[in-house]
């Protein structure tokens, strides 16, 4: 379990008036969702968390170690990122080689590499497709493949950028289970998402951004209990709350239908 400490961070793109500005943020939970509107700064924060671009001001520390000072190998072992668009990550001739590519930069033991690839492919259900050209896969399969490439390296921290996007329902379930498993086995998972139902059902902690600033940090129940920050972040509450409000004029916080049922069937 790692602790990410962000202090006094400023980042601005050249020729743009958008600025990401985070005074103090520590991410110490195993499952954290980052939410906000388009252009709120989520992706910029992710880019900074990969350590591949440096902020103009401030620093990011992971377990009290400055991210900027990690060697490329340490970085690969610490942080893995799964991008929104899987097509920009893939280039190898087969699914299997794709998973092997990053891994073989860290490991030299051929047997270990083989075993790891097998495991990674199995956990996303792509074993059968291991000899296929990655560009012949469907979009959800491509996305699962990019997850497998990171699973093979087994970093401490997983960054998922919009993992639910363009996935079908079975793949969404698979990824949810996978993320929960990672969190239970001592990894840290941070996910950018628009899907508030998913946040409400899956994430115990969340961070909301708006216009480059952190507007909320804490448990989802608190976030959704006051409509102001939700609106400020350009978001909608979980659908179950909308149903309760519109049908029963009930303005309490509910995260899932199960949550609603528990609170009501008791009486």
């Amino acid at each position: 379990m790692s602790i990410i400490q962000i202090s006094d961070l400023r980042y601005q793109y050249p020729a743009s008036d958008f600025q990401l500005s985070i005074n103090q943020l520590s991410i110490a939970d195993s499952l954290v969702a980052i939410v906000g509107q388009n252009g709120a700064g989520k992706s910029t924060l992710f880019k900074l968390l990969t350590g591949l671009i440096q902020p103009q001001k401030g620093e990011i520390n992971i377990n009290q170690q400055n991210l900027a000072r990690l060697t490329p190998e340490e970085r690969l072992r610490t942080i893995g990122i799964i991008f929104q668009d899987p097509s920009s990550q893939l280039f190898n001739a087969t699914v299997e080689k794709e998973v092997a590519w990053s891994l073989s930069q860290l490991e030299s033991d051929a047997e270990l590499i083989q075993a790891t690839i097998k495991k990674a492919l199995a956990s996303v259900g792509l074993t059968k497709l291991k000899d296929q050209n990655p560009f012949d896969l469907s979009l959800p399969e491509k996305k699962l493949l990019t997850i497998a490439t990171v699973l093979a390296i087994n970093p401490q921290i997983y960054l998922f950028d919009e993992p639910m996007m363009s996935l079908d329902w079975p793949s969404q379930r698979l990824v949810t289970v996978l993320i929960q498993h990672l969190a239970q086995t001592g990894h840290q998972v941070i996910a950018i998402t628009h899907d508030m139902d998913w946040v409400a059902a899956t994430f115990p902690k969340m961070v909301a951004l708006a216009a480059g600033n952190v507007v909320f940090e804490g448990v989802p129940t608190n976030f959704f209990s006051c409509p102001e920050p939700v609106k400020k972040a350009g978001l909608l509450p979980p659908r179950i709350m909308t149903i309760a409000q519109e049908v029963f004029n009930d303005h309490q916080v509910y995260l899932t239908p199960q949550d609603y049922a528990e609170k009501h069937l008791v009486h």
Binding site: K47, T50, L52, P72, E73, R75, L76, I81, F83, D85, S88, Q89, F91, W101, S102, Q105, L106, T149
Partner: peptide
């Protein structure tokens, strides 16, 4: 985008 993604993969 691609250059960034590949850099992240090492």
């Amino acid at each position: 985008k691609i250059q960034f993604a590949e850099k992240a993969r090492g």
